[in-house]
């Protein structure tokens, strides 16, 4: 907290959800305020919200105005099926419920929920210092490890879990990835994720094919706040049905 204050970093409360689309895989957000239906002051609508969709480069590619008539009303926001990924934020004064993101192949759908966390805003001088220092560290394959996450990912003969990394800040985030397979072999990568951008980490490219489903250890270090969702893929990998799943 002290470091953030010294660096002038602000944290803006934000509800966000990941999104990923592929040909034949439609991504739809499902918004409601049902968890607030017994909360004083939240029993009557309308509940207004603005959904802003960012793509992998951090560009705004969609903005949707949503109105829920009452707490049990639901509204779908289709993010289409043009291939892409990123995250979407939901701004609302009066929605106090978890919101879902769903992926569908047309016959069934998978679902998970978003996160009420924050997006970090760095002032220009701090952003400039970060950009210089992380560019230098990148020359030796490193980053400034301001945030670190450990996560298991899974690789099997007919399924695997990829990782959707979301840069929840207004600065470029260099994220160092170390994936350690079950046999102890480690693979490393250094990613450069634009402000409010995202990166789909293809776990299959960092591991050898497995004859049985095994867990690999993933260590992620970034110079700014980021979070991740797992992307589940079956036998057809990213060309087939997909799932998204939050992590703690």
């Amino acid at each position: 907290m002290l470091a953030r204050a010294l660096l002038g970093v602000r944290r803006e409360r934000t509800y966000y959800l990941p999104w990923i689309t592929r040909r034949g895989v439609d991504c739809t957000l499902l918004l409601s305020n049902v968890e607030a239906r017994f909360k004083e002051g939240f029993t009557r609508g309308p509940f207004l919200a603005t959904v802003t969709q960012y793509n992998a480069r951090g560009k705004t590619v969609g903005r949707y105005e949503v109105s829920l008539h009452d707490p049990t009303d639901t509204v779908e926001v289709s993010l289409g099926d043009t291939p892409g990924h990123g995250f979407a934020t939901v701004a609302s004064e009066r929605i106090n419920s978890d919101l879902y993101v769903t992926l569908s192949d047309g016959t069934s759908y998978t679902a998970t929920h978003g996160r009420h966390e924050f997006v970090e805003q760095y002032p220009p001088w701090t952003a400039a210092v970060l950009a210089t220092s992380t560019a230098l560290l990148a020359l030796v394959g490193r980053t400034l490890p301001a945030f670190a996450r450990d996560q298991y990912v899974y690789v099997g003969p007919d399924s695997r879990s990829h990782v959707l990394l979301m840069n929840l800040s207004n600065v470029t985030n260099r994220i160092r990835v170390v994936l350690t397979a079950a046999d102890g072999a480690a693979r490393r990568a250094l990613l450069r994720v634009p402000p409010r951008g995202a990166h789909l980490l293809d776990v299959g490219r960092l591991t050898d094919p497995a004859s049985v489903t095994t867990a690999c250890r993933l260590r992620l270090e970034g110079n700014a706040w980021f979070n991740l969702y797992l992307v589940g893929a079956g036998a057809r990998d990213l060309d087939g049905p997909l799932s998204l799943m939050h992590v703690k």
Partner: peptide, 19 residues
């Protein structure tokens, strides 16, 4: 917090990862 990975063997379906 525990999570788990779930997939029907041999199926084309996506695996699920759940709390």
């Amino acid at each position: 917090h525990q999570y788990a990975y779930l997939h029907p063997r041999g199926a084309t379906d996506a695996p699920l990862y759940y709390a």
